[in-house]
């Protein structure tokens, strides 16, 4: 199979994730979409690694996974706190940190 198809899939997944981040208000959904974008990138990295024939892309994919895991820990904690205090998971509601 042409490896380029994985790249196309990755682009589609990234776009879906990006659209989700931009369009959805629910913090959990936004968060999931961010994860989707990260994984789309991982897919692209792995594909390129395969295409180029070296391991750099796979190594980076592992890094991304580690970072994503850490991010999930911090991010979910923040979201839970926001939900507890504001009784809502809408990202538009939490706009106190401005000018």
């Amino acid at each position: 199979m042409n490896p380029m198809n994985y790249v196309y899939l990755s682009a589609v997944l990234f776009s879906i994730g990006a659209a989700g981040v931009l369009l959805r208000r629910n913090a959990i959904v936004v968060f999931m979409c961010v994860e989707l974008m990260l994984n789309a990138c991982n897919l692209a990295f792995v594909t390129f690694s395969r295409m180029e024939g070296n391991l750099d892309g796979q190594v980076i994919a592992f890094f991304v996974m580690v970072v994503a895991a850490a991010e999930v820990v911090v991010g979910l904690a923040i979201i839970v706190t926001i939900v507890r205090t504001r009784r809502s998971a809408s990202v538009d509601g939490a706009n106190l940190l401005k000018y």
Binding site: A18, V30, V91, D92, A94, L96
Partner: peptide, 15 residues
């Protein structure tokens, strides 16, 4: 004024 506090508008500008 560009710093609206809306996460999604920040995301849009990043994109």
């Amino acid at each position: 004024r560009l710093q609206t506090g809306f996460v999604r508008s920040y995301a849009l500008s990043m994109f």
